[in-house]
Design a protein around this nucleic acid. Structure first.
Length: 861
DNA sequence: GCAAGGTC
């Protein structure tokens, strides 16, 4: 090390760190990788020579969540509003905190180069929290500095260095507040809705029925359009179609009726006969004006996404992925920006020069460079990133063709268009009179196509009206009264939806695609790839939104977001303190939540109208312990039992569930089932599985249950248990948990086996065994385990004298051990399991049984 | 299994 004081600079993303280092060092930095890339150089700071290190985080360092004890879906979601929240590393894999600590160690100064928006301000404090404790600033020094930059340019970065300030705590706190509100509101409503509706309706195949302050209003837009469409009643209308002949032009002109249309057929007919009574139309006036079609301003994210969706058939989410890749590969500039105005000092000419010689638009670029290049028009500079531009010239094959090319092609053409002259044309319009009615004809002549040269799909059509004089009389060729009917608007296009979200402040440029993707993947809408990506809500989507409108419309309206934003603005501007705003707003949402829970039936009745209640589907299966009637097995996932009389839904673990010979649970009287997991079968009580009678008992879990559905304490398990599992029994006991037990598999022969309640261990008995039973009273004198009674086949018995009955300990008896094989069963250690007990056989210094069946005895353990 | 916001 140089021994100079160290100045650590931290940017929001690696690419920005590289740019900043380049500007501050005039390109003379060295780069090394250590977690994230670090760029180093020497430079004066505060009047002293310093060693600069410039590195980056990857967006937020931390994210917010509930502590572990609030993660259970069995809790009443209402308590979440008062629950504590904690910050933890957002992407633990990236080890950003560790990286920051290492680079900050001993540093004298920290300069924060996070993006200059609220989120960036919040990340500042995340970075400070990681760095400050390990830094070694000079006594009395202000050592944390905030760099404020409005563009990634040398000027702006140098200016930021000269005007360093302090990070804005108020803005950061506003973000903390948003995070807490979004988390609590979103998770509380989502858990409640999901638990309430899940299992109630058979064709409702949704694993999660989510609510969110952005996703739900997004869905609302799509549903409102749907309602407009379905409530539309067509109305008949009539319109006059008149064509006149222009002798001077030698062609027929199609006119437009000034009234456009009337909604009464008799009136339409009256107009028709009036016009038809005239043989000529008189040219009342002719107007000619020069018009301009303005060049587009710079391209921001939202406009790029709209164009991709509407013009390229590429979804917003997909477009963002493709743009991201083009950016990483250096073809286009940073694709996440709100700005449509180029910042002062932006190198427009250099950017344009890079496109010189391009086979598709190089010629036009030359023309611009030769003098016709025009200053970009208007737009807004949000101070985040410049508009999206091409960075270097590339051909279709260079960017990899397909979607990447279509996007690059658009970005390049859009940029070139933004510095091209406007398109100029002459518009000529004439008004004709016939039968007292006015009709119009128009045409236009392009003078200079300007920017539309590179964006031909937006060109003005060259369609001259030709010579037509005021006072001229044109013969009428045809007069027709056409009948039509009003039609509903089409479904919302994704591009329109993006526009609505932007205008209503739902999401950000970076998150809008995620929200749209969200409502699609949750099956609230489908997006039709044919016909311009129309967003069509599903029954589920419509039902949810209608439900919110019945109970509390605000839940689905964009106002939810803007109300919260207003509260946050108060924090950000220091007009109110974080604490009280959060408390106040949470109280409002908690009240909304209680009201929602109270009135959920109003949404439920809507669900009933669209979905089959579970009670009307499924086949009669096993007996309910309370009404003694048959419950129905609903096999659409998630698999469950439904008792029509008790209106109770009992969840079942994923896997095969069978009947267990009419046996009943001693605890609750429900008919017992067999639960098959891979090649192991366990007894199961559907009631006890959902309402565990013991502390630490099983809970319904999604997916596979990795061991037995019940602990040993349940009588149906206890009756079959013989000894602790040699694989997981003892170990877990040492950890203070109930270990696994070997139990006789309840399905019987001819392939008798013992299975572990906790892991995948299977103890198979060979084919000399005819029958096995377990009796609580037969206890091994040596180890205290229960001794199963094994009955051998007469002709295959290993017992002396042809004896067939053998009561012996599975753990201690050598003879019995000669008739077994240990194996690890299939289908274990998947799906999370319960308490992490399943299939933990590895890495403990003993040789575990292999996946293949293998002769091995208990002595091997 | 849950939100929304950064960014890869």
């Amino acid at each position: 090390m140089s021994g100079l004081p160290v100045v650590l600079c931290v940017a929001e993303k690696p690419s920005l760190a590289a740019s900043i280092a380049g500007f501050l060092s005039e390109g003379k930095h060295r780069s090394r990788r250590g977690g994230q890339e670090v760029h180093e150089f020497e430079r004066d700071f505060n009047g002293a020579r310093c060693h600069f290190k410039v590195t980056a985080v990857i967006g937020h360092v931390l994210s917010i969540d509930f502590p572990a004890k609030f993660q259970s879906w069995d809790l009443d979601p209402a308590i979440l509003f008062d629950a504590p929240v904690q910050k933890k590393e957002a992407t633990p894999k990236a080890r950003v905190v560790e990286h920051l600590e290492r680079e900050a160690k001993g540093a004298s100064h920290l300069i924060l180069w996070l993006d200059c928006d609220r989120e960036g301000e919040n990340i500042c404090f995340e970075v400070i929290d990681a760095c400050a404790p390990v830094m070694r600033p000079n006594r009395g020094d202000t050592f944390v500095h905030r760099a404020k930059f409005s563009a990634v340019s040398k000027e702006s970065i140098e200016r930021a260095m000269r005007t360093l300030g302090a990070p804005n705590r108020a803005e950061a706190l506003a973000v903390d507040a948003r995070q807490e509100l979004d988390l609590k509101v979103g998770v509380a409503f989502t858990r409640f809705q999901t638990r309430f509706f899940q299992g109630r309706y058979s064709h409702l195949d949704a694993s999660v029925i989510s609510y969110g302050p952005c996703q739900t209003p997004t869905l609302n837009f799509a549903v409102q359009r749907h309602l407009e469409i379905v409530s539309h009643t067509p109305e008949d209308f009539w319109s006059l179609h008149v064509e006149v002949r222009s002798t001077s032009l030698g062609k027929t002109l199609v006119t437009r009726w000034e009234r456009e249309r009337v909604f009464d057929g008799d009136v339409g007919e009256m107009f028709r006969s009036m016009v038809a009574g005239d043989r000529h139309a008189l040219v009342e006036s002719v107007e000619e004006t020069e018009e301009f079609k303005r060049r587009p301003p710079g391209l921001n994210t939202v406009d790029l996404l709209k164009a991709a969706s509407a013009g390229m058939g590429m979804g917003a989410h997909r477009a963002m992925q493709v743009a991201e890749r083009l950016y990483i590969q250096g073809f286009i500039s940073y694709p996440r920006t709100e700005s449509t105005a180029y910042p002062p000092g932006f190198d427009l000419k250099g950017t344009l020069k890079a496109q010189r010689g391009h086979p598709d638009w190089g010629e036009w670029v030359e023309e611009l460079l030769a003098g016709s290049m025009t200053k970009p028009r208007g737009g807004k500079d949000e101070g985040d990133h410049p508009p999206i531009t091409p960075v270097r010239s590339a051909t279709e094959s260079a960017v990899g063709g397909g979607e990447a090319w279509r996007l690059y092609d658009f970005v390049a053409r859009h940029f070139i268009a933004s510095v091209s002259p406007d398109c100029a044309y002459v518009s000529r319009r004439a008004t004709l009179v016939a039968g007292g009615e006015r009709f119009r004809v128009s045409g236009q002549t392009v003078i200079a196509p300007g920017w539309t040269t590179v964006m031909p799909h937006r060109a003005v059509e060259d369609d001259p009206l030709g010579e037509i004089e005021r006072g001229e009389s044109l013969p009428i060729a045809t007069v027709e009264l056409r009948q039509g009917a009003t039609s509903p608007p089409p479904y919302l296009s994704e591009a329109e939806l993006i526009g609505l979200m932007e205008r209503n402040g739902i999401g950000t440029d970076a998150s809008i695609p995620t929200h749209i993707n969200n409502i699609e993947s949750r099956k609230y809408v489908t997006i039709q790839s044919q016909g311009g990506r129309r967003v069509v809500p599903t029954d589920l989507g419509v039902t949810l939104v209608q439900g919110y409108h019945r109970i509390d419309p605000e839940l689905a309206l964009p106002a939810v977001r803007s109300h919260v934003e207003k509260q946050l603005d108060m924090i950000a501007t220091g007009k109110a303190d974080h604490e009280s705003i959060v408390r106040h707003t949470l109280a409002q949402f908690a009240a909304k939540f209680r009201n929602f829970v109270d009135q959920i039936e109003r949404m439920d009745t809507l669900f009933e109208a669209s979905f089959d209640p579970t009670c009307s589907s499924g086949k009669p299966f096993s007996k309910c312990g309370r009404c003694l009637r048959y419950m129905r097995l609903v096999s659409t996932r998630p698999q469950r039992l439904y008792c029509p009389t008790q209106e109770e839904v009992l969840e079942l673990p994923a896997g095969t569930v069978k009947l267990y010979n009419n046996r009943e649970c001693q605890l609750c009287g429900f008919e017992l089932l067999l639960y098959q997991n891979g090649d192991r079968t366990y007894p199961m009580c559907p009631w006890c599985f959902n309402h565990p009678p013991f502390v630490g008992g099983s809970r319904p879990t999604k997916g596979l249950v990795s061991g037995a559905p019940h602990p040993r304490a349940h009588p149906i398990v206890d009756a079959l248990v013989v000894c602790p599992c040699p694989e997981c029994g003892e170990d877990d006991k040492l950890k203070g948990r109930e270990g696994g037990w070997l139990m006789l598999e309840p399905v019987g022969g001819p392939r008798w086996k013992f299975v572990c309640t906790g892991c995948a261990l299977v103890v198979k008995l060979n084919d000399s065994v005819h029958r096995v039973t377990v009796d609580k009273l037969d206890v091994c004198g040596a180890c205290g385990a229960r001794c199963p009674t094994v009955i051998y086949h007469k002709d295959r018995t290993p017992l002396a004298g042809g004896e067939t009955a053998h009561v012996a300990c599975l753990a201690c008896d050598d003879l019995l051990n000669s008739s077994i094989e240990l194996a690890r069963g299939r289908g274990a250690a998947r799906g999370g399991g319960r308490g992490g007990r399943g299939g933990r056989g590895r890495g403990r210094g003993r040789k575990p049984p292999s996946d293949h069946d293998q002769k091995m005895s208990f002595k091997d353990f």
